[in-house]
Design a protein around this nucleic acid. Structure first.
Lengths: 196, 196
DNA sequence: ATCCGAATATGATTGAAATCACATGTTACC
DNA sequence: GGTAACATGTGATTTCAATCATATTCGGAT
Protein backbone atom coordinates (compact mmCIF):
# COMPACT_ATOMS: atom_id res chain seq x y z
CA UNK A 1 0.00 0.00 0.00
CA UNK A 2 1.16 3.51 -0.74
CA UNK A 3 1.92 5.86 2.18
CA UNK A 4 -0.41 8.70 3.19
CA UNK A 5 -1.82 10.58 1.33
CA UNK A 6 -1.23 8.67 -1.89
CA UNK A 7 -3.78 5.98 -1.09
CA UNK A 8 -6.41 8.47 -2.22
CA UNK A 9 -5.21 8.27 -5.82
CA UNK A 10 -6.82 6.23 -8.59
CA UNK A 11 -5.10 2.97 -9.64
CA UNK A 12 -4.90 4.37 -13.17
CA UNK A 13 -2.41 7.02 -12.08
CA UNK A 14 0.10 4.40 -10.90
CA UNK A 15 2.59 2.37 -12.94
CA UNK A 16 4.46 -0.56 -11.50
CA UNK A 17 8.04 -0.95 -12.79
CA UNK A 18 10.97 -3.27 -12.17
CA UNK A 19 14.62 -2.32 -12.22
CA UNK A 20 17.91 -4.20 -12.01
CA UNK A 21 21.08 -3.00 -10.34
CA UNK A 22 22.57 -0.08 -12.25
CA UNK A 23 19.36 0.81 -14.10
CA UNK A 24 18.33 4.45 -14.23
CA UNK A 25 14.80 5.27 -13.04
CA UNK A 26 15.40 8.76 -14.40
CA UNK A 27 18.31 11.00 -15.26
CA UNK A 28 19.30 14.51 -14.24
CA UNK A 29 17.60 16.83 -16.73
CA UNK A 30 14.80 14.42 -17.77
CA UNK A 31 11.36 16.02 -17.84
CA UNK A 32 9.44 15.09 -14.67
CA UNK A 33 6.92 12.28 -15.13
CA UNK A 34 5.96 11.86 -11.50
CA UNK A 35 7.14 10.81 -8.09
CA UNK A 36 8.11 7.31 -6.95
CA UNK A 37 7.55 4.74 -4.22
CA UNK A 38 9.98 1.90 -3.56
CA UNK A 39 7.83 -1.23 -3.04
CA UNK A 40 10.99 -3.29 -2.63
CA UNK A 41 14.71 -2.85 -3.26
CA UNK A 42 16.71 0.34 -3.21
CA UNK A 43 17.11 3.44 -5.36
CA UNK A 44 19.90 5.89 -4.89
CA UNK A 45 19.62 9.56 -5.87
CA UNK A 46 22.89 11.05 -7.03
CA UNK A 47 23.75 14.37 -8.50
CA UNK A 48 26.63 15.15 -10.82
CA UNK A 49 28.24 18.54 -10.30
CA UNK A 50 29.95 20.75 -12.91
CA UNK A 51 33.33 19.36 -11.95
CA UNK A 52 32.08 15.84 -12.58
CA UNK A 53 31.86 14.74 -8.96
CA UNK A 54 29.02 12.40 -8.08
CA UNK A 55 27.13 13.06 -4.85
CA UNK A 56 24.56 10.83 -3.18
CA UNK A 57 21.60 13.00 -2.18
CA UNK A 58 19.32 10.34 -0.83
CA UNK A 59 19.22 6.60 -0.50
CA UNK A 60 15.62 5.38 -0.86
CA UNK A 61 14.93 1.93 0.61
CA UNK A 62 11.84 -0.29 0.68
CA UNK A 63 8.87 1.82 1.79
CA UNK A 64 10.49 5.17 0.96
CA UNK A 65 9.36 7.67 -1.64
CA UNK A 66 11.63 9.82 -3.75
CA UNK A 67 11.51 12.82 -6.11
CA UNK A 68 8.60 14.27 -4.15
CA UNK A 69 9.70 17.83 -4.79
CA UNK A 70 9.55 17.24 -8.54
CA UNK A 71 5.83 18.10 -8.58
CA UNK A 72 6.84 21.73 -9.07
CA UNK A 73 9.88 21.15 -11.27
CA UNK A 74 9.98 20.69 -15.02
CA UNK A 75 12.99 18.38 -14.90
CA UNK A 76 14.69 16.11 -12.39
CA UNK A 77 17.68 17.55 -10.53
CA UNK A 78 19.48 14.26 -9.98
CA UNK A 79 19.96 10.71 -11.27
CA UNK A 80 17.93 7.89 -9.74
CA UNK A 81 19.95 4.69 -9.93
CA UNK A 82 18.86 1.24 -8.82
CA UNK A 83 21.16 -0.29 -6.16
CA UNK A 84 19.24 -3.54 -5.64
CA UNK A 85 16.65 -5.43 -7.73
CA UNK A 86 13.65 -3.19 -7.18
CA UNK A 87 9.92 -2.84 -7.65
CA UNK A 88 9.00 0.80 -7.98
CA UNK A 89 5.60 2.48 -8.29
CA UNK A 90 5.50 5.62 -10.35
CA UNK A 91 2.76 8.07 -9.41
CA UNK A 92 1.74 10.27 -12.32
CA UNK A 93 2.46 13.97 -11.93
CA UNK A 94 -0.78 14.95 -13.65
CA UNK A 95 -2.87 12.82 -11.30
CA UNK A 96 -1.14 14.39 -8.30
CA UNK A 97 -1.74 17.89 -9.58
CA UNK A 98 -5.41 17.10 -10.18
CA UNK A 99 -5.83 15.61 -6.70
CA UNK A 100 -4.00 18.56 -5.14
CA UNK A 101 -6.62 20.90 -6.58
CA UNK A 102 -9.63 18.77 -5.64
CA UNK A 103 -8.75 17.10 -2.33
CA UNK A 104 -7.86 19.21 0.71
CA UNK A 105 -6.74 16.29 2.88
CA UNK A 106 -4.47 15.07 0.08
CA UNK A 107 -2.95 18.52 -0.29
CA UNK A 108 -2.34 18.75 3.44
CA UNK A 109 -0.68 15.33 3.41
CA UNK A 110 1.68 16.39 0.64
CA UNK A 111 2.59 19.59 2.46
CA UNK A 112 3.34 17.67 5.63
CA UNK A 113 5.55 15.22 3.75
CA UNK A 114 7.53 18.09 2.23
CA UNK A 115 7.92 19.73 5.64
CA UNK A 116 9.35 16.49 7.00
CA UNK A 117 11.71 16.29 4.05
CA UNK A 118 12.98 19.78 4.80
CA UNK A 119 13.75 18.66 8.35
CA UNK A 120 15.51 15.56 7.02
CA UNK A 121 17.70 17.59 4.72
CA UNK A 122 18.59 19.90 7.55
CA UNK A 123 19.63 16.84 9.52
CA UNK A 124 21.78 15.61 6.66
CA UNK A 125 23.34 19.06 6.36
CA UNK A 126 24.16 19.07 10.05
CA UNK A 127 25.84 15.73 9.49
CA UNK A 128 27.87 16.94 6.51
CA UNK A 129 28.99 20.02 8.42
CA UNK A 130 30.87 17.98 11.04
CA UNK A 131 34.57 17.96 10.33
CA UNK A 132 35.58 14.88 12.30
CA UNK A 133 34.98 11.54 10.57
CA UNK A 134 34.32 9.85 13.92
CA UNK A 135 31.65 12.39 14.94
CA UNK A 136 30.04 12.13 11.51
CA UNK A 137 29.92 8.35 11.50
CA UNK A 138 28.72 8.10 15.11
CA UNK A 139 25.87 10.56 14.60
CA UNK A 140 24.92 8.97 11.29
CA UNK A 141 24.73 5.51 12.84
CA UNK A 142 22.72 6.92 15.76
CA UNK A 143 20.33 8.45 13.24
CA UNK A 144 19.94 5.03 11.66
CA UNK A 145 21.56 5.91 8.35
CA UNK A 146 23.59 2.67 8.16
CA UNK A 147 20.95 0.43 6.62
CA UNK A 148 22.52 -0.89 3.42
CA UNK A 149 26.17 -1.32 2.49
CA UNK A 150 28.92 0.64 4.21
CA UNK A 151 30.03 1.87 0.79
CA UNK A 152 26.65 3.49 0.18
CA UNK A 153 26.58 4.81 3.74
CA UNK A 154 30.02 6.36 3.32
CA UNK A 155 28.98 8.13 0.14
CA UNK A 156 25.79 9.40 1.72
CA UNK A 157 27.59 10.99 4.67
CA UNK A 158 30.36 12.38 2.48
CA UNK A 159 33.29 10.17 3.43
CA UNK A 160 35.37 7.63 1.55
CA UNK A 161 34.61 4.03 2.45
CA UNK A 162 38.11 3.64 3.91
CA UNK A 163 37.68 6.59 6.27
CA UNK A 164 34.29 5.18 7.15
CA UNK A 165 35.57 1.68 7.98
CA UNK A 166 38.32 3.18 10.09
CA UNK A 167 35.89 5.39 11.99
CA UNK A 168 33.57 2.42 12.54
CA UNK A 169 36.43 0.34 13.92
CA UNK A 170 37.69 3.24 16.05
CA UNK A 171 34.26 3.87 17.52
CA UNK A 172 33.83 0.15 18.17
CA UNK A 173 37.23 0.05 19.92
CA UNK A 174 36.15 2.98 22.11
CA UNK A 175 32.92 1.19 22.91
CA UNK A 176 30.69 3.85 21.35
CA UNK A 177 29.53 1.44 18.65
CA UNK A 178 29.00 -2.31 18.78
CA UNK A 179 29.85 -4.49 15.81
CA UNK A 180 26.86 -6.74 15.21
CA UNK A 181 28.24 -8.53 12.17
CA UNK A 182 30.18 -8.10 8.97
CA UNK A 183 29.44 -4.54 7.88
CA UNK A 184 26.83 -4.15 10.64
CA UNK A 185 27.25 -1.73 13.52
CA UNK A 186 24.82 -0.37 16.12
CA UNK A 187 25.13 2.33 18.76
CA UNK A 188 26.18 0.97 22.15
CA UNK A 189 23.30 1.60 24.57
CA UNK A 190 24.19 4.53 26.83
CA UNK A 191 24.33 3.90 30.57
CA UNK A 192 21.15 5.94 31.26
CA UNK A 193 19.19 3.50 29.11
CA UNK A 194 20.27 0.57 31.25
CA UNK A 195 19.46 2.06 34.63
CA UNK A 196 16.94 0.06 36.69
CA UNK B 1 4.94 43.25 1.87
CA UNK B 2 5.08 39.56 2.73
CA UNK B 3 5.94 37.10 -0.03
CA UNK B 4 3.37 34.85 -1.70
CA UNK B 5 1.15 33.39 -0.32
CA UNK B 6 1.35 35.14 3.05
CA UNK B 7 -0.23 38.34 1.75
CA UNK B 8 -3.57 36.54 2.09
CA UNK B 9 -3.28 36.53 5.88
CA UNK B 10 -5.00 38.94 8.25
CA UNK B 11 -2.89 41.70 9.84
CA UNK B 12 -3.89 40.36 13.24
CA UNK B 13 -1.89 37.19 12.70
CA UNK B 14 1.35 39.14 12.27
CA UNK B 15 3.66 40.58 14.93
CA UNK B 16 6.48 42.96 14.12
CA UNK B 17 9.61 42.53 16.26
CA UNK B 18 13.05 44.11 16.45
CA UNK B 19 16.26 42.34 17.35
CA UNK B 20 19.83 43.40 18.04
CA UNK B 21 22.96 41.47 17.15
CA UNK B 22 23.23 38.33 19.24
CA UNK B 23 19.53 38.22 20.20
CA UNK B 24 17.71 34.93 19.92
CA UNK B 25 14.49 34.93 17.88
CA UNK B 26 13.93 31.41 19.20
CA UNK B 27 15.97 28.59 20.64
CA UNK B 28 16.36 24.93 19.75
CA UNK B 29 13.62 23.10 21.66
CA UNK B 30 11.25 26.09 22.09
CA UNK B 31 7.63 25.33 21.23
CA UNK B 32 6.82 26.64 17.76
CA UNK B 33 4.98 29.95 17.72
CA UNK B 34 5.03 30.55 13.98
CA UNK B 35 7.23 31.25 11.01
CA UNK B 36 9.22 34.39 10.27
CA UNK B 37 9.95 36.97 7.59
CA UNK B 38 13.06 39.16 7.64
CA UNK B 39 11.90 42.69 6.75
CA UNK B 40 15.45 43.95 7.22
CA UNK B 41 18.69 42.70 8.72
CA UNK B 42 19.86 39.10 9.01
CA UNK B 43 18.99 36.06 11.08
CA UNK B 44 21.20 33.03 11.21
CA UNK B 45 19.84 29.55 11.94
CA UNK B 46 22.31 27.36 13.78
CA UNK B 47 22.01 23.96 15.30
CA UNK B 48 24.00 22.57 18.18
CA UNK B 49 24.89 18.90 17.89
CA UNK B 50 25.37 16.38 20.71
CA UNK B 51 29.13 16.94 20.65
CA UNK B 52 28.55 20.66 21.15
CA UNK B 53 29.47 21.77 17.64
CA UNK B 54 27.53 24.68 16.24
CA UNK B 55 26.42 24.44 12.64
CA UNK B 56 24.90 27.14 10.46
CA UNK B 57 21.85 25.70 8.74
CA UNK B 58 20.63 28.76 6.95
CA UNK B 59 21.49 32.42 6.75
CA UNK B 60 18.28 34.42 6.27
CA UNK B 61 18.76 37.91 4.83
CA UNK B 62 16.37 40.78 4.10
CA UNK B 63 13.38 39.41 2.21
CA UNK B 64 13.92 35.79 3.27
CA UNK B 65 11.64 33.65 5.39
CA UNK B 66 12.75 31.07 7.91
CA UNK B 67 11.38 28.23 10.04
CA UNK B 68 8.78 27.49 7.37
CA UNK B 69 8.83 23.77 8.12
CA UNK B 70 7.93 24.44 11.75
CA UNK B 71 4.20 24.48 10.88
CA UNK B 72 4.22 20.73 11.43
CA UNK B 73 6.71 20.61 14.30
CA UNK B 74 5.99 21.07 17.98
CA UNK B 75 9.36 22.64 18.69
CA UNK B 76 12.09 24.40 16.74
CA UNK B 77 15.04 22.30 15.59
CA UNK B 78 17.61 25.07 15.68
CA UNK B 79 18.55 28.42 17.20
CA UNK B 80 17.67 31.61 15.33
CA UNK B 81 20.26 34.25 16.15
CA UNK B 82 20.28 37.83 14.96
CA UNK B 83 23.44 38.75 12.99
CA UNK B 84 22.52 42.36 12.17
CA UNK B 85 19.99 44.82 13.61
CA UNK B 86 16.78 43.32 12.25
CA UNK B 87 13.08 43.84 11.80
CA UNK B 88 11.30 40.52 11.74
CA UNK B 89 7.64 39.69 11.15
CA UNK B 90 6.32 36.69 13.00
CA UNK B 91 3.41 34.93 11.33
CA UNK B 92 1.24 33.07 13.80
CA UNK B 93 1.18 29.30 13.45
CA UNK B 94 -2.52 29.13 14.29
CA UNK B 95 -3.44 31.63 11.60
CA UNK B 96 -1.44 29.66 9.04
CA UNK B 97 -3.10 26.41 10.01
CA UNK B 98 -6.54 28.03 9.74
CA UNK B 99 -5.75 29.54 6.33
CA UNK B 100 -4.32 26.22 5.14
CA UNK B 101 -7.66 24.55 5.81
CA UNK B 102 -9.79 27.29 4.26
CA UNK B 103 -7.81 28.68 1.34
CA UNK B 104 -6.72 26.36 -1.47
CA UNK B 105 -4.49 28.90 -3.19
CA UNK B 106 -2.73 29.61 0.10
CA UNK B 107 -2.19 25.93 0.68
CA UNK B 108 -0.77 25.49 -2.81
CA UNK B 109 1.56 28.43 -2.27
CA UNK B 110 2.90 26.92 0.94
CA UNK B 111 3.46 23.57 -0.72
CA UNK B 112 5.33 25.19 -3.57
CA UNK B 113 7.54 27.13 -1.16
CA UNK B 114 8.42 23.93 0.68
CA UNK B 115 9.22 22.18 -2.59
CA UNK B 116 11.59 25.00 -3.51
CA UNK B 117 13.21 24.76 -0.09
CA UNK B 118 13.82 21.06 -0.63
CA UNK B 119 15.59 21.88 -3.89
CA UNK B 120 17.64 24.57 -2.13
CA UNK B 121 18.77 22.17 0.57
CA UNK B 122 19.76 19.67 -2.09
CA UNK B 123 21.86 22.39 -3.68
CA UNK B 124 23.53 23.15 -0.37
CA UNK B 125 24.17 19.43 0.16
CA UNK B 126 25.78 19.18 -3.25
CA UNK B 127 27.99 22.07 -2.22
CA UNK B 128 28.98 20.47 1.09
CA UNK B 129 29.82 17.21 -0.64
CA UNK B 130 32.61 18.77 -2.73
CA UNK B 131 35.97 17.96 -1.24
CA UNK B 132 38.03 20.72 -2.80
CA UNK B 133 37.83 24.09 -1.05
CA UNK B 134 38.36 25.89 -4.36
CA UNK B 135 35.49 24.05 -6.06
CA UNK B 136 33.25 24.68 -3.08
CA UNK B 137 33.99 28.37 -2.90
CA UNK B 138 33.74 28.89 -6.66
CA UNK B 139 30.36 27.17 -6.93
CA UNK B 140 29.06 28.93 -3.82
CA UNK B 141 30.02 32.34 -5.20
CA UNK B 142 28.45 31.44 -8.55
CA UNK B 143 25.27 30.51 -6.70
CA UNK B 144 25.31 33.94 -5.09
CA UNK B 145 25.91 32.70 -1.53
CA UNK B 146 28.52 35.38 -0.75
CA UNK B 147 26.20 38.18 0.28
CA UNK B 148 27.29 39.08 3.80
CA UNK B 149 30.62 38.62 5.53
CA UNK B 150 33.18 36.08 4.38
CA UNK B 151 33.16 34.62 7.90
CA UNK B 152 29.45 33.84 7.67
CA UNK B 153 29.88 32.59 4.12
CA UNK B 154 32.67 30.27 5.19
CA UNK B 155 30.58 28.80 7.98
CA UNK B 156 27.62 28.32 5.67
CA UNK B 157 29.62 26.35 3.12
CA UNK B 158 31.44 24.36 5.78
CA UNK B 159 34.95 25.81 5.61
CA UNK B 160 37.07 27.81 8.03
CA UNK B 161 37.36 31.49 7.17
CA UNK B 162 41.09 31.06 6.54
CA UNK B 163 40.56 28.26 4.02
CA UNK B 164 37.88 30.42 2.48
CA UNK B 165 40.07 33.53 2.12
CA UNK B 166 42.83 31.41 0.61
CA UNK B 167 40.45 29.83 -1.88
CA UNK B 168 39.06 33.27 -2.78
CA UNK B 169 42.57 34.59 -3.39
CA UNK B 170 43.57 31.49 -5.33
CA UNK B 171 40.49 31.70 -7.56
CA UNK B 172 41.09 35.42 -8.09
CA UNK B 173 44.72 34.70 -9.03
CA UNK B 174 43.53 32.13 -11.56
CA UNK B 175 41.05 34.64 -12.96
CA UNK B 176 37.99 32.57 -12.07
CA UNK B 177 36.82 35.18 -9.59
CA UNK B 178 37.21 38.95 -9.64
CA UNK B 179 37.84 40.87 -6.45
CA UNK B 180 35.36 43.74 -6.43
CA UNK B 181 36.39 45.17 -3.06
CA UNK B 182 37.39 44.31 0.47
CA UNK B 183 35.68 41.00 1.18
CA UNK B 184 33.75 41.24 -2.10
CA UNK B 185 34.22 38.78 -4.91
CA UNK B 186 32.22 38.02 -8.06
CA UNK B 187 32.49 35.33 -10.72
CA UNK B 188 34.59 36.44 -13.68
CA UNK B 189 32.23 36.56 -16.71
CA UNK B 190 32.94 33.54 -18.89
CA UNK B 191 34.07 34.20 -22.48
CA UNK B 192 30.79 32.90 -24.00
CA UNK B 193 28.91 35.67 -22.18
CA UNK B 194 31.03 38.35 -23.82
CA UNK B 195 30.70 37.15 -27.41
CA UNK B 196 29.12 39.68 -29.80
C1' DA C 1 32.41 -26.24 -8.16
C1' DT C 2 34.63 -22.38 -9.46
C1' DC C 3 35.29 -17.91 -11.19
C1' DC C 4 34.31 -13.08 -11.04
C1' DG C 5 33.02 -8.79 -9.07
C1' DA C 6 31.95 -6.20 -5.19
C1' DA C 7 32.06 -5.32 -0.22
C1' DT C 8 34.70 -5.57 3.88
C1' DA C 9 38.79 -4.48 6.10
C1' DT C 10 43.32 -2.50 7.09
C1' DG C 11 48.12 -0.62 6.37
C1' DA C 12 51.27 3.17 4.32
C1' DT C 13 51.78 7.59 2.24
C1' DT C 14 50.39 12.10 0.86
C1' DG C 15 48.07 16.27 0.48
C1' DA C 16 44.96 19.70 1.64
C1' DA C 17 42.39 21.97 5.09
C1' DA C 18 42.35 22.96 10.12
C1' DT C 19 44.67 25.20 13.50
C1' DC C 20 47.59 28.59 15.44
C1' DA C 21 49.53 32.99 15.12
C1' DC C 22 49.54 37.62 13.88
C1' DA C 23 49.11 42.15 11.17
C1' DT C 24 46.03 45.46 9.41
C1' DG C 25 41.49 47.67 8.46
C1' DT C 26 36.89 48.93 9.60
C1' DT C 27 32.97 49.93 12.42
C1' DA C 28 30.53 51.27 16.35
C1' DC C 29 30.08 53.05 20.61
C1' DC C 30 31.29 55.59 24.92
C1' DG D 1 38.96 60.70 19.75
C1' DG D 2 39.98 56.48 21.65
C1' DT D 3 39.29 51.82 22.10
C1' DA D 4 36.94 47.51 21.83
C1' DA D 5 35.17 44.12 18.81
C1' DC D 6 35.29 42.08 14.72
C1' DA D 7 36.38 41.38 9.66
C1' DT D 8 39.99 40.84 6.38
C1' DG D 9 44.03 38.74 5.03
C1' DT D 10 48.33 35.79 5.11
C1' DG D 11 52.12 32.84 6.86
C1' DA D 12 53.75 28.39 9.49
C1' DT D 13 52.66 24.00 11.36
C1' DT D 14 49.92 20.00 12.24
C1' DT D 15 46.44 16.83 11.71
C1' DC D 16 43.46 13.87 9.66
C1' DA D 17 40.99 12.18 5.74
C1' DA D 18 42.02 10.99 0.82
C1' DT D 19 44.52 8.12 -1.87
C1' DC D 20 47.03 4.06 -3.11
C1' DA D 21 47.76 -0.65 -2.22
C1' DT D 22 46.35 -5.24 -0.93
C1' DA D 23 44.19 -9.29 1.39
C1' DT D 24 39.97 -11.61 2.51
C1' DT D 25 35.21 -12.80 2.27
C1' DC D 26 30.85 -13.11 0.28
C1' DG D 27 27.26 -13.69 -3.32
C1' DG D 28 25.88 -14.50 -7.84
C1' DA D 29 26.66 -16.26 -12.44
C1' DT D 30 28.42 -19.94 -15.45
Amino acid sequence: MLPTPFGALDEKSLSQMRYSIGDHVFRQGDTTKGIFFVASGGICLTRVTESGNSVTIYNAQTGDMFAEASIYSDHYHCDAICTAPSEVVRISKQAIQKQLREDTAFSEGITKRLAVQVQDYRQLLTLHAMKSANDRVLLAVELGKLTGSVTQFANQIGLTKEACYRALRDLSDRGLLTKTGRGRYAPTPRSEDRLP
